[in-house]
Write a protein that binds this DNA or RNA. Structure first.
Lengths: 211, 211, 211, 211
DNA sequence: TATGAATGAGCTTTCATTCAT
DNA sequence: CATGAATGAAAGCTCATTCAT
């Protein structure tokens, strides 16, 4: 076996372990998840895990990053930078919803890690992840600003408020999608995106609501 | 001292402990928070805690419920049932934002507890809390439905989608309020509610966005 | 029970644990000794040990210091500072031999701890102990110097060489006392001290040896 | 390549590994030294070590024996059996001091291994090594006895006491030589031997000390 | 023969819970 | 009622040893 193949093999094994870790961490969160459970899920011995990861925290950190990177590359390949700003926002919503609907386990771990209070002891990791999350918000801000300049988005609402609202609508949809546990919920992704965009753009007011 | 006064005393002590627990759980989450820290914060002996609560889980559960009930009574006293549906939604947003902006610690624990994945081991508690959370969503659904009937809210968007969006906008605002750590952010609550309602009702689209 | 009595009690318990630790550490050295063995020997639960000592290293460190202090106070109470320098040296030898003959377990741990190579990972402790050991050598140096000034000890041999030799004679006697495992060896302490002093002072040369 | 050459090669590899082991064991002692460190130092794979040694204990044992044999052959080639007893003792001291001053690493491992308490779990090894050590003491005893018979050494001091003292003087000099870490200390070996012999033979007493 | 990834028993340490005072 | 010392199950992690390549 060549050296390249070996490296590839090692990476595949790391990923196998991270996928097991993801399942456990998603179900239980960080602290209550035992390394023993992860290695049982991964079908390896305890010592083996420590050949691939420094410690439990590194395993958690790496797993999160792995998921993030999956999501990021998923987004990158789905977003057409030259599209109009509203289409880009729609793509962002669609990518996130589809990604999490197809990777149910992933969201739990996100919620865990983005809750800063859990992470006062994992500063390094938290900062790196917050940076990534903030990166998404920044990107959305730029899109919204462009939308304003190009006449797609009204200028009398703070960009920040728009982004927080949009992000919250998408995030809450994901969260409640996860709650239902409904395996066919995936098919509704397109409809849900449509609804989110309709609300975001046109609002929910009827005649009297515009008063 | 009368029997009633004694009971009152006992309840005051329970509350004192729960307030200490809240601080600790908010800062650290459930598992990493040590009972030792709670009793130190509360200024009592470790054994004493177990006179008032069955175990750590019961302490957590009770603390969450205590906070929920605080929020609920806060809402009840602020909402005018006879107001129009949009005003009620605005009140709901306002109450939540104000409550959490004044009780920063409270939100962390909420995030923790509402992440179902953390709670597979605390089924009993989770169900009760989910019931409360769903209670709020149900209430919002009823308001939205009334809004539709009374001509305030357009009928071509699913009530569920509206509620999820609204709830997400409010929740994300709270979450990011917590992130900033900005002590004067509290003063913006009214503005933020205004933004949320404007987006929810009228949407963010400009000319081209309505195409 | 008064507060003073409680403190006294706590100290007695610490000592009880250190005595158990001494037995185990003496038999096995630091690393191979399991905390489990110590707590079994002490008749306590594992957690209890950690109420009295920060960690295994602290237990080891404290135990060594406890022994050192025992030896030191034993010496202090046996040495008459106003005696002539040779008598003081004799007392020093006698105290050490007697102490270790009565506390066989103690010597093994001394050998372990004074072997610097074992301690590269326990710098803090090692330095403190080396300081104590060097303190004894310094004290002996001063006595020898006084002996030279007062005409008891010849001036043509370096003080350092004398001290190292004296210390080595005493130390090796202790070491081999420990080897024999002979329980009645204790009675010979006085004879052994006499021999050491005779050799140290007069040397072993016969007629031809003085050539 | 002939069969003899192959065997020779194998032995060279064993020695290479033992030299690496010596460095590591000397620095850290037995337990804290990791097999990993030894193989890294030796530049071989972990599995390879187990082709040459049964287990870690065997590696340690063999390494000690290797050093002992080095010292022994060093002594044998330096000692003139027909010299007078005092010269032989001087040679013994000189050989040991010189050997360890030139092989600083060696002494640490000696201290470790000669501390019987560390070795209750390595009985087999301990006995073999004790036998060698006692062999040296026995040899010294014979020399001292001959010295008594031939009129070099006074007869009123037990041979055993003389040997223990001599051995202790030499051993402590080596130990403190190691402590200082002084790289030029090596040059003093001759002076130190002279001092040891002077003290051993003539004693340190001045006029009043002979009283 | 040489390799080094995999193993799992065994280690130190933590912490929710109990109970004699 | 209140205390806090004692408990021991369970956690994270290490490392001597094996074995398929």
């Amino acid at each position: 076996m060549s050296k390249t193949e070996k490296l590839y093999d090692k990476e595949k094994k790391r990923i196998n372990i991270m996928q097991a870790a993801l399942k456990i961490f998603s179900r239980k969160g960080y602290s209550p998840a035992a390394v023993d459970e992860v290695v049982r899920e991964a079908g390896i011995a305890k010592g083996t895990l420590y050949l691939y990861f420094q410690d439990k925290e590194d395993l958690f950190f790496s797993t999160i990053m792995y998921v993030f990177d999956n999501l990021a590359s998923n987004m990158e390949s789905n977003i057409n930078e030259s599209a109009n700003p509203l289409e880009i926002l729609e793509s962002l919503a669609f990518c996130q919803l589809q990604f999490f609907s197809q990777n149910r386990d992933f969201f739990g771990i996100f919620q865990t890690v983005l809750n800063e209070n859990l992470l006062s002891t994992h500063k390094k990791m938290f900062n790196e992840i917050l940076k990534k999350k903030m990166g998404l918000l920044d990107y959305e801000s730029k899109i919204v600003d462009r939308g304003k300049r190009e006449g797609f988005i009204r200028k009398d609402i703070e960009t920040q408020d728009i982004v927080i609202s949009f992000d919250g609508m998408v995030g809450n949809t994901i969260k409640l999608m996860g709650c239902s546990g409904d395996p066919v919920a995936a098919v509704n992704v397109e409809n849900r995106v449509k609804s989110i965009m309709k609300i975001l753009l046109q609002g929910v007011a009827d005649k009297k609501g515009w008063a």
